[in-house]
Nucleic acid binder design. Sequence first.
DNA 1: ACAATCAATATTGGATCCAAAATAAAATCT
DNA 2: AGATTTTATTTTGGATCCAATATTGATTGT
Lengths: 221, 221
Amino acid sequence: MDIEARPPQTTQQYVLDQLRRAILTGQLAPGSAIRQDALADQLGVSRVPIREALKILEGEGQVIYRPRRGYMVAELALEDFLEVYRIRQILEDEAVRRAVERITDEDIQRLQDAHADVVAAGQAGEITAMAAANRRFHFTLIDAAGMPRLRRFLSILWDASDVYRSLYYSEESNRERVDREHKGIIDAVRARDTDDLIRRLSEHRAGTVATFREFMAKQES
Amino acid sequence: MDIEARPPQTTQQYVLDQLRRAILTGQLAPGSAIRQDALADQLGVSRVPIREALKILEGEGQVIYRPRRGYMVAELALEDFLEVYRIRQILEDEAVRRAVERITDEDIQRLQDAHADVVAAGQAGEITAMAAANRRFHFTLIDAAGMPRLRRFLSILWDASDVYRSLYYSEESNRERVDREHKGIIDAVRARDTDDLIRRLSEHRAGTVATFREFMAKQES
DNA sequence: ACAATCAATATTGGATCCAAAATAAAATCT
DNA sequence: AGATTTTATTTTGGATCCAATATTGATTGT
């Protein structure tokens, strides 16, 4: 399923991919320090490409950097999570408004394909694959807006909350809900019904937020 | 006037500051390649901190990176400029909505101080200082929203268009207009009149966009 | 004169090394 | 024993070096 067969062009790109994966899977836990030397040994590279990859992640807010103290994986408090979702709301509303005007039949086909992958991965219980397909689904819509900066910001926001979104998919009932809501979203796109689409997407996001709220409440106890 | 008397903590920070300045002043022109070796000589440092600083700027979209080809200063076509301002519009609307609810009297005092600096710099004809004070003015408002990610995105968007905003200030009539509009903005904040504030800010931005449009039209001929 | 090929040069990417700072551990003092 | 200072260790920041790739310039052939 993974298309990325060819190796990355540079070592820093390779390191960046690995770091993303480690953060996503929780191998590098939120709040933990990132030891450059250990990581270099583990990946079989020197510290130089690691430092460059970390600078990229710093820019995305995935890691926190303190001069002469090094990097640590960013944590996401409830407050932060809500901010991420609030900004997503605002930016995605704008994105789909533009997208509806510009979207092609091929795009809609891609939307359907991505959703098929979501369902397939969901039934197979492959949470990671499902998260990836889900992201493809939503970014097909976002890409159709043709706004590269907006796309990049949204990408950063999705990255920030990716870890916790997997939580949502781990529940069977939520997976069914995603299936249902995605179908509704596709219908709204086909009908070019912007208001309906925005409403459905808002509803769609609300589920994840609720799950995160519960999760954080349980964490405290 | 420059408060930043103490030197940066690390060399990469110093290089980052210098690169920002060079891009802002046009010393590094949009579209031009950035030669790491030459820059290292010029700043009296090695290439390592330069590479790290460039990675930060890459993340902000200020420079474009192509593997094994190096970095070049990003260009801003009219289309890009309009996207930047559209996203600014959306995010700043949200920011001020929150800000109005949370803003304190000290914040409003800071707003006034910043505006006084804008006017003073404007009368002295110091465009760079005026741009800096103007930024302080607007980010006082944005900061009051208490949304760090939104603040960061807006910071990136301001950076992207900073070069061209100076263009706007270079005209005397525009400087007067800024003075007038800022006063109106402060009044709206004091009155906690969100709708009026949003309207005024929108109007305020429109001037810069118009100037950029004219500039680009002239460029072509 | 122009295009294509080959050689020379410039530039980036990564590894290794050392100094400076931060952290952890040991020793000293009250 | 507990707090404080001193010493040892770990870790980051920066410089230098070399290999791999890209770019430029020269050479050859048509």
